[in-house]
Every structure is written in C-alpha cells, then in structure tokens.
Simulated scan of single mutants.
Amino acid sequence: MAKGRIYGVALGPGDPDLITLKALKVLQAADVIYYPTTINSKGESNSMAMRVLKHQAIDLKKALPVEVAMKYKRAAVTKTYKKLAADSIELSQQGKQVAIVSEGDISFYSTFAYLIDDFNKANVDYEMIPGVPAFILAGALSASPICTQTDEVLVMPDVESEEQLKTKIASTETVVLMKVSKVKEWIAEFLASIEVDFFYGEYMGTDKEFTTRNIYQLKGRRIPYFSIIIIKAKHKEQ
C-alpha cells in the first residue's frame, strides 16, 4: 500500500490568483480535500476557502466541507477539530493523500495548528504548504510598505482595551490588528482620537472587498470577521 500523507495547504487571503503553485499541485494530487465552511442564521453555507477552490483546476468532487463555528471561544470547535484530525489520520493510514486547506498562511492563526498534536501522536506524515497572509495583501492594497529598514511590526489577534492598543502603537512602528470585529464598538472613535495613519480592509481579494483610509467611512460601518487594520503612528514616519 502506498504511504499516505496529510498536507496543510494555505489558500492565501481570498484572491484566487494568490494561491501558490505548490499549493495548487498538492490539491490537484490529493485524494481528499477538507475545507472549512460556516452556516449562517438562515442555514446557508458560506466558505471563503471554496471561493478560492472553485477557481482552480481541481476536481471539486473530492472536496469535503468541515463546518467550523466562527467563535472566539475555541472550546466550541474542539470536537470538530478532533474529528477532522481523526478522519485525516485514518485516510492517510489507508494510503490516501489528504489536503486540509485554510485561508491565509497555514502556520499563521490557522485551523491546522489545532490538528498537529493529534498527527504527532498518531505518528503520521504531514507537511505544511505556506501561503500569503491577509495582512501582507493589506499592505499591497494600501500601496505603501508595512515596514522598512529596522521598523518593528506587531501583529495583534486580540486587544484587551483602548489603553493597551494605545500603548502598543506608541512603542511600535506598525501595528497590525486582526479580527477587528472584536473591537468594532470603539475602534473608529479610537483611531479618530489619536494621531495615526491607518488602512482598513475587509474581505480582501474577493468580490466583497472594501478598503479605506477615511475615518468617516469606518465610523458606523458593520465590521465583519474577515477584517484587518494596519496602524502607523504619524510621528514615526521618515
């Protein structure tokens, strides 16, 4: 029996053209492709990953959805991850090539990270295929560098308070704020109250893309889960 393997495959930030050649080759050769999907309040399925997959030269009959709850408390999806890991391990032990896809980069706040312990315990082969993180796309869309020379960049997946964010901005050249929806109640007013330049992006690389540097466009906007802000203090510009 041929030896199976599990691949964590990054799809990039949403633009189908930003998937890597290596990722595409792995997906084309895979026997099974697991992709994340969510179910909205109307019972409709939504998958950023499938938006990318359907534009590739891939047989989508081998693509299987994995319903993942988009909740910040990770205990809500532990059972889902355990089942995904167990199913992937079983298939790989049968000699199958299994691909588990994720938006962005596979090692950067990715679902795949929650599966690795189970793969190691089962002593199965796995490989991680990197991709373009969303904040790198944001930098490109902003038409300005995220950092230059000796600039420090801080990526924050969570913010405890306005004061914490203000402190981080004061001590770092560039702050990348992920999951902006967690602070949607105060982030626009906060940015307006301090001296910074910012770039906001949501659903970047998709047909729902919206970006702005205008604080008035950000105020009152319904900020979704897939959103990012790049913040630069004006006094640190060169």
Rank of each mutant, 00 (worst) to 15 (best):
N214I: 12
G201E: 06
A99K: 01
V153F: 12
I229L: 01
T78N: 10
N40G: 04
V180P: 07
E160R: 14
E195K: 06
V153L: 15
Y34I: 04
A49I: 09
G8R: 02
A188H: 06
T150D: 15
V155N: 11
S193K: 07
I33G: 00
K166P: 11
Q94S: 14
V180F: 14
L165P: 05
D31T: 05
I187W: 14
M1Q: 14
P16D: 03
F198K: 09
D151S: 09
Y81L: 03
M48R: 11
I187E: 11
D31C: 06
I228G: 11
V153H: 11
L11V: 06
I116N: 03
T167I: 12
E103I: 01
E189R: 03
G43Q: 15
K25S: 15
L154P: 02
V77W: 07
D125C: 00
I194V: 10
T111L: 02
E209R: 13
V9R: 03
A143M: 01
I229N: 00
K62Q: 10
A75G: 08
V132Q: 08
I116P: 01
L115C: 06
E162S: 10
I6R: 03
D87P: 06
G8Q: 03
A23Y: 00
I116V: 05
M48E: 11
A122N: 00
I129C: 01
M1H: 14
R221V: 08
L165D: 08
L141A: 07
M70R: 04
T20N: 15
T172Q: 02
V101E: 07
K184G: 11
A233S: 06
P133F: 09
D117Y: 03
K219C: 12
T37V: 10
I89Q: 00
Q56S: 02
V132Y: 07
G131L: 02
G8T: 00
E185M: 00
M48I: 10
T172N: 05
I136T: 15
V155S: 10
K121Q: 10
K25V: 08
L60N: 13
V124S: 04
K232L: 00
Y126G: 01
K62P: 13
L27T: 12
A138L: 09
D118P: 00
F190N: 15
T38P: 05
P130W: 00
E90N: 06
M48C: 12
G95Y: 06
A69G: 11
A29Y: 13
Q217R: 10
R74T: 03
T172S: 00
E209L: 13
A170P: 06
K82P: 09
A143E: 08
G201N: 03
Y203F: 15
A75K: 12
T78P: 00
L154A: 04
S45E: 15
